[in-house]
């Protein structure tokens, strides 16, 4: 079939939009790998800036990974049972909880951080610890975990599956771990990936909650943009991309996989 003018116009527009989004990323990557960004690639490629970032900011990278992992763990322990409770119960309380869970998505991160600081800021041990950031991250990412598991639970007839298991003698916990959790796997995995990426990239809330000793990668990145050479901050971005891209690709791949539910 001969493709018309509209097809080529659309293609050109799409490519233009893609270029608009991708070119800055590409430029940033290049900047992090060139000797002198203002001279350009002809000044030579180097890993010097990446090494420098690693020397200066390795602790922020480890802290970011640590917080992302613990946030995910906490979300798994709270989010999955919470989604199960919401799917099972149809009461005013569950509807209220559902609404409450959605709030952190709508409220700006800064406002959540301010709330946390004004309530718990006085407990200095807690305020100075990375746990303070963890709490903020859990509040911000929990809705994504709950909603993702809840969506899967609502798409499978989990009540009948549970009744089936119960009729065979399975106790509540056996039903939960043998039937509910494995059949929510797609929701749980996508919730985990979302939590990891959101926590690793979170800036607004973390910027308000951090102390000089509890600096995460995005906060360090802002810091380096403000005070370092462009090459250094670009190399920092490169490390962040290396961390976050595999997770994003995995999330995309999971969403494309057709769900096979009997």
């Amino acid at each position: 079939m001969k493709k018309g003018m509209y097809f080529y116009l659309q293609l050109a527009f799409t490519l233009l939009v893609c270029a608009f989004l991708i070119v800055p990323i590409f430029m940033s990557i290049t900047a992090g790998l060139t000797n002198n960004y203002f001279v350009g690639v002809k000044s030579g490629l180097t890993l010097r800036w990446v090494e420098q970032v690693w020397r200066m900011y390795a602790d922020t990278i480890w802290l970011t990974m640590g917080i992302a992992l613990v946030t995910t763990l906490v979300n798994l322990c709270i989010g999955v049972p919470c989604a199960y409770y919401l799917a099972r119960t149809r009461s005013k309380l569950s509807a209220f909880l559902d609404e409450c869970l959605t709030l952190p998505i709508a409220i700006p991160g800064m406002a959540i951080a301010l709330g946390l600081i004004s309530v718990y800021g006085g407990i200095s041990e807690f305020r100075m610890s990375w746990l303070f950031i963890l709490v903020g991250h859990v509040i911000f990412t929990l809705p994504f975990m709950v909603k993702s598991v809840l969506a899967v639970l609502q798409s499978i007839n989990f009540r009948v599956l549970e009744e089936g298991a119960a009729s065979l003698g399975a106790s509540f916990w056996q039903r939960f771990f043998h039937v509910i959790v494995p059949n929510c796997k797609t929701g749980i995995v996508s919730g985990v990936l979302m939590t990891l990426t959101l926590s690793a990239g979170e800036f607004n809330l973390t910027w308000m909650l951090h102390t000089p000793l509890t600096k995460t990668l995005p906060v360090g990145l802002a810091d380096s943009y403000a005070s370092m050479r462009l090459e250094v901050s670009s190399a920092y971005t490169l490390i962040f991309l290396g961390m976050i891209l595999p997770l994003l690709i995995a999330a995309q791949w999971l969403n494309r996989k057709p769900k096979r539910m009997a």
Partner: peptide, 9 residues
């Protein structure tokens, strides 16, 4: 059960 309730996992 009417819908068999077989475990998909």
């Amino acid at each position: 059960f009417q819908s068999y309730a077989l475990f998909p996992n």
